[in-house]
Design a binder for these strands. Structure first.
Length: 225
DNA sequence: AACCTCGACAACCGCTTTTGC
DNA sequence: AGCAAAAGCGGTTGTCGAGGT
């Protein structure tokens, strides 16, 4: 059995302090991302390497985009989730500045409920037979309001998401400057250092349909949604 | 004011995959 | 080829703040 990496006595756990953050930033600024296992000791941190890696990737990296998700980002997440399932690192790889953890959290806290509210099964992205019962005491919940800003019915939702991504796709083809969202769905060697390496290993997923996803089929599938 | 509930998100944990020997 | 270590991923948990009672 493999010994756990984080069982070392004296290692800090829980929230990171400003000092710890700074130590990690300073170390990586100077030495770059290297061996996470040995980094904590070298950087003077009482954390396990795994924790350092997570902190850097999800929070401290300079190219992290924080704040609310834009409508086109939402749409893209929904579409990519329909295609790829819970492969958050792959989905995040298509959203510059977003991390898998952030996308996953956003999905679980916002988008899942949004889809359920719209009568769509978030697991398979199909319309449910029975729409959720409207809540009489809440004429318009925040989620409903948000949802209804851009759609009038569930059917419109499908169109809207499709249109949004398609138009983004067109934008992407015609003008690189208008949007930094990467809609190129080809699975290939990561083009930048911050991109998750998971793109190089898609075959390990047991999610239905994803194992068949290949570079040349993804854009087609995307347009199909 | 005190307590409770819920949502958001950071962080952890366990497992799988990759890499190096 | 086989093994162990390291890295990566996704599910889950913990914590904190906001809002309601």
């Amino acid at each position: 059995m493999r010994k756990p990496c984080c069982d070392k006595q004296g290692n800090n756990k829980g929230a990171w302090s400003k000092q710890e953050d700074q130590k990690l930033i300073d170390y990586i600024t100077i030495h770059g991302e290297g061996c996470w296992r040995s980094l904590p000791k070298a950087a003077g941190l009482h954390r396990c390497g795994k924790s350092c890696r997570l902190r850097w990737i999800n929070y401290l990296r300079p190219d992290i985009k924080r704040g609310n998700f834009a409508q086109d980002e939402e749409d893209l997440i929904i579409k990519l989730h329909a295609l790829l399932g819970n492969r958050w690192s792959l989905i995040a790889g298509r959203l510059p500045g977003r991390t898998d953890n952030e996308v996953k959290n956003y999905w679980n806290s916002h988008l899942r409920k949004k889809l359920i509210n719209m009568g769509i099964d978030p697991n398979n992205h199909r319309l449910n037979q029975i729409l959720p019962r409207p809540q009489p005491e809440r004429v318009s919940s925040p989620i409903d309001e948000d949802t209804c800003k851009t759609k009038k019915s569930t059917g419109d939702y499908i169109d809207r998401v499709s249109d949004a991504a398609s138009s983004s796709l067109e934008e992407n083809e015609t003008s690189a400057g208008s949007s930094d969202i990467n809609l190129d769905l080809t699975i290939a060697v990561p083009s930048s250092a911050h991109t998750s390496t998971s793109e190089t290993r898609p075959e390990n997923c047991d999610t239905a349909a994803t194992s068949e996803v290949r570079s040349e089929t993804l854009p087609t599938l995307l347009l199909f949604l």
